[in-house]
């Protein structure tokens, strides 16, 4: 082993050529650019970013499914481009919404089949399958055909598939995508338990849910448009906003309030206004609290009334807004569907 990182990337980049039939020049799309990450063994590392930010591209590179066009990446100390076989012996991957396996096989048979590809003896594989299905609460469906499972149950089966082989490094790409609140909570608590069981296990998780990154991850990298904008523990990322004053204001406004009116006020770092049901909500980050008076005066001059005003602790969402200038939802709506 050349280094002590479980995962390391240096100036990692990926440019896709988009075939453009009929035209001579192919277009290119930069999915990932200059990504530097160092993840230590035992870390539960989160990549937080909107859809299309490059999270899946990064996972594909690290799991040897995609070659980088620039830079270097290693997993478990092995170069993903030069030694994919060494990497593959040590990893596994689960993606949200995947439809892997064969619908005609039962849950147990599908899992057994994948265990075979990892050289795990049938007896041991079946024992592990039984235990894991019990842990995620689908033991009663072990003999159901996987084609008969609901999305949530299927995703639990996929999660079991990833953990079954006890990989040194596990990649989870949006593991709770499309799951209901209860199932997401089950999956998150299972992930945490698995990490707590063995300090050598490393897990890289991508998500676009703030709460998932905040609750679960030891460290988080915020990624947008292929670039890592910040990296640190959730607490340290939020701490970068600690000197700012963050307010959440519910308004009753007869007309649409325009953000630019507020963002030019002195002391306002960022302002986001959006409607929620019948209320107008303003999320405000100020350099210092004294700037609030100006904001309130402007709100009143626009004919709006303040219903509630709360000062609150910063969240990862605020960190994202500060870094990108938009809320994650807005980035997703503004961009074309993820490629």
């Amino acid at each position: 082993m050349e280094n002590h990182y479980a995962i390391e990337t240096q100036s990692l980049g990926r440019v896709y050529k988009i075939r453009n039939p009929g035209k001579k020049e192919n277009k290119t799309l930069t999915a990932l650019e200059g990504v530097d990450l160092q993840i230590k063994p035992g870390e539960l590392f989160g990549l937080l970013g909107p859809n299309g930010a490059g999270k899946t591209t990064l996972i594909k590179i690290l799991t040897t499914l995609l070659a980088p066009t620039h830079g270097y990446a290693s997993v478990a100390g092995y170069d993903v481009s030069k030694s994919p076989d060494d990497v593959r012996q040590r990893i596994n991957m689960v993606s949200g919404g995947e439809s892997s396996g064969y619908g005609l096989l039962t849950v147990r048979e599908n899992l057994w089949m994948f265990a075979q590809f990892y050289g795990i003896e049938s007896k041991e594989a079946n024992q592990r399958i039984k235990t894991l299905l019990e842990i995620v609460g689908i033991a009663d469906r072990a003999n159901s055909r996987s084609s008969n499972l609901s999305t949530g149950l299927r995703q639990k089966m996929n999660i079991v598939r990833g953990f079954l082989t006890d990989p040194e490094i596990l990649f989870l790409d949006e593991p709770t995508l499309g799951l209901d609140v209860g199932a997401s909570r089950d999956v998150r608590s299972f992930i945490r338990r698995w990490m707590d069981d063995d300090p050598k296990r490393t897990l890289l998780l991508t998500t676009h849910y703030m709460i998932e990154a905040d609750e679960l991850c030891d460290r988080v990298a915020i990624i947008n448009k292929g670039k890592v904008l910040a990296c640190g523990t959730p607490a340290s990322l939020k701490q970068s906003l600690q000197k700012d004053a963050i307010f959440h204001i519910d308004l009753d406004s007869p007309k649409v309030l325009v953000e630019s009116v507020f963002s030019i006020l002195p002391g306002v770092t960022s302002v986001k206004i959006h409607d929620n049901e019948n209320k107008t909500i303003m999320d405000l980050v100020l350099d210092e609290e004294s700037a609030l008076a100006n904001v309130i005066a402007t709100v009143t001059s626009q004919g709006a009334q303040i219903v509630t005003l709360q000062k609150r602790e910063p969240t990862l969402e605020d960190v994202f807004v500060k870094l990108v200038g938009q809320r994650m939802e807005e980035v997703e709506h503004a961009d074309a569907p993820a490629s």
Partner: peptide
């Protein structure tokens, strides 16, 4: 909650297991 995998076959055994799987 789950012990580590006790034995992982490699080489021709893994090849054979993959074929059967």
């Amino acid at each position: 909650m789950l012990p580590p995998v006790s034995k992982r076959h490699t080489g021709w055994r893994l090849f054979l297991m993959t074929v059967i799987g």
